[in-house]
């Protein structure tokens, strides 16, 4: 039953175990070399393992056998996007959405391809794809390693000879982490305000863009007013609270629907309540 190996491959892919996903997909293909699910998962695992030309060849063959499969077109689009061929990627995503307008995998690919038209975002997209390829253990190592490096740099900053070098580094690191948390929703926001880009966002991305945009908009208005109004520390606090609140707000729609999303929405709501009551109190 190649379908069973396809399911195993999908599960391993979801666990970011690219090599195991590839093995399961290839075991399924040993029984049926034309199995669409196994071929798709084989290509997805190959892209994650950096074997892009093999992934492209797999998708070429799969599409040649069944040119009307939406998932195969979406997969071809992602493979092309990974190879930096944006125009071809967009053509495949559009074809995938024409066959199945509900294909979220193709829609998110089209969004990424539109974003990649922006040269600043092209660099960030490469960064996000690279981050997406790391196993969950490596991602935790980066977070913890960054924290350890931060502690070390703070100690170094205590020495006056090092201070002028260390402070900009710490600011750059904090800025890097903040941007890595907010880059995706900020560009969703840019798409949201774009007449064409709006249609490429799904409902989740639209809600997230509206939430993050609202929080950042309030922060900008309050921050801007604080320059005009004298003795305006309340406005500065309001700008800080609503600006920082955009971080947990942007995380809500990253969580799976159901209890994880409700939990994250609850956390963000509780933080908003604490932050705004602190502001009112002060």
């Amino acid at each position: 039953q190649p379908e069973v190996y396809g399911t195993i491959a999908a599960a391993e892919f979801g666990r970011r175990e690219w090599r195991r996903a590839l093995e399961a997909a290839e075991r399924g293909l040993a029984f049926d070399a034309e199995h669409v699910t196994c071929n798709n998962l084989r290509a997805m695992a190959l892209v994650r393992l950096g074997r892009k030309s093999e992934a492209g060849a797999t998708m070429d063959a799969t599409l040649a056998r069944d040119p009307h499969d939406s998932v195969s077109h979406a997969n071809m689009g992602w493979t092309k996007l990974e190879q930096g061929e944006r125009k071809e990627a967009m053509a495949h995503f559009r074809e995938a959405l024409r066959i199945d307008p509900g294909n979220g995998w193709a829609r998110s690919g089209l969004v990424e391809a539109i974003k990649a038209g922006n040269p600043v975002y092209a660099i960030m997209l490469k960064y996000f794809l690279w981050m997406g390829k790391l196993s969950s253990r490596t991602m935790w190592m980066i977070v913890l390693g960054g924290y350890v490096a931060y502690r070390f740099l703070r100690q170094l900053a205590a020495d006056p000879r090092w201070t002028p070098w260390v402070i900009p580094l710490i600011i750059a690191y904090v800025g890097f982490v903040l941007l890595s948390w907010l880059a995706a929703p900020l560009f969703d926001l840019a798409l949201f305000l774009h007449p064409m880009g709006k249609h490429a966002l799904d409902d989740d991305a639209r809600t997230r863009a509206a939430l993050v945009g609202g929080a950042l908009g309030l922060a900008l208005v309050a921050g801007g007013l604080s320059f005009v109004v004298s003795d305006s520390y309340q406005l500065v606090i309001l700008a800080l609270v609503s600006g920082v609140l955009s971080i947990p707000l942007s995380a809500i729609h990253v969580c799976a629907e159901g209890w994880p999303r409700r939990a994250m929405a609850g956390i963000a709501g509780a933080l908003a309540a604490v932050g705004f009551s602190a502001w009112i109190g002060l």
């Binding site: 991602m139 935790w140 920082v244 609140l245 995380a251 990253v254 933080l271 932050g275 109190g281 002060l282």
Partner: peptide, 30 residues
């Protein structure tokens, strides 16, 4: 005043909470 101290504590709790929520989000994210 007591109200001011409480508000400051809430503000500190807010910023700590933001940090902790990132770990929660990492864990809850798909």
């Amino acid at each position: 005043s007591a109200a001011e101290t409480l508000s400051l504590a809430a503000l500190i709790l807010f910023f700590l909470g933001i940090f902790v929520s990132q770990f929660a989000a990492n864990w809850l994210a798909t």
